[in-house]
Design a protein around this nucleic acid. Sequence first.
DNA 1: TTGATATATAAGTTTGAACTAATATATTTA
DNA 2: TAAATATATTAGTTCAAACTTATATATCAA
Lengths: 123, 123
Amino acid sequence: MSNAFDILGDPVRRRILELLADGQRASGEIVEVIAAEFAISQPAVSQHLRILRDSGFATSRADGRRRLYAVAPERFDEIDAWVQRFRRTWEPRFAALATEVARGKKARRQDNESAGPVDLPDA
Amino acid sequence: MSNAFDILGDPVRRRILELLADGQRASGEIVEVIAAEFAISQPAVSQHLRILRDSGFATSRADGRRRLYAVAPERFDEIDAWVQRFRRTWEPRFAALATEVARGKKARRQDNESAGPVDLPDA
DNA sequence: TTGATATATAAGTTTGAACTAATATATTTA
DNA sequence: TAAATATATTAGTTCAAACTTATATATCAA
């Protein structure tokens, strides 16, 4: 399965998901909005919808001759999980120190030598 | 400024940021890892580093003839903020209901007519 | 100085993802 | 049944982002 960020690395797909965040929509309704905003054709939008379905960011169900799309929230967890590691837990002043400490720990484990002193960045 | 997802929509840049998440690294160290994993040249990596700098995902400072790169965490907040709206707040069983309710509210506001009954999905 | 090292930039090429036009499929309506 | 509507798929094109090669810049070391 393709990386979540690769799927979201397209403004049209992000916009489609924003529309779906307000609730399910038919393909045609989506085409109306997207075609107007991005000046692309119905097939182009349909192809994006397919990518969103195939990648698990959206689901669709038939409703007569329409197809209703909805967000499938599961894959957003991956984004969350990945971004987590870059989250500042403390004051900005201490963020750099935290990474230095993390590196120090790692180096000690690998090299079995103690880490040198750590410079605190200026506040 | 380019959308955060557009910057992260590249596996090389994501991998570089993962390396930097463990602490600052010199360009050369990054090139070593990335060139091995993705089979690309030093200039290719350098160009990605420039994009990460220019977009505010990383900072760099000179250290002799080396350049030390570090993560700049600010832009990750945008990701967080965008993903927020897709987050399931309740049990999965009620997530679909929640969006239906949201749509109902909107429709009422716009059309000044009451929303129809809502189907609870099977648990 | 000169050569070696570390990194960035410039210029040109390649490639794949996103597009269009045409058409297929499925459903509803007359 | 045929025509109209809604959507998906196919096949081929395009273009921008990512790449390579060559070179520039800056620092260190002999």
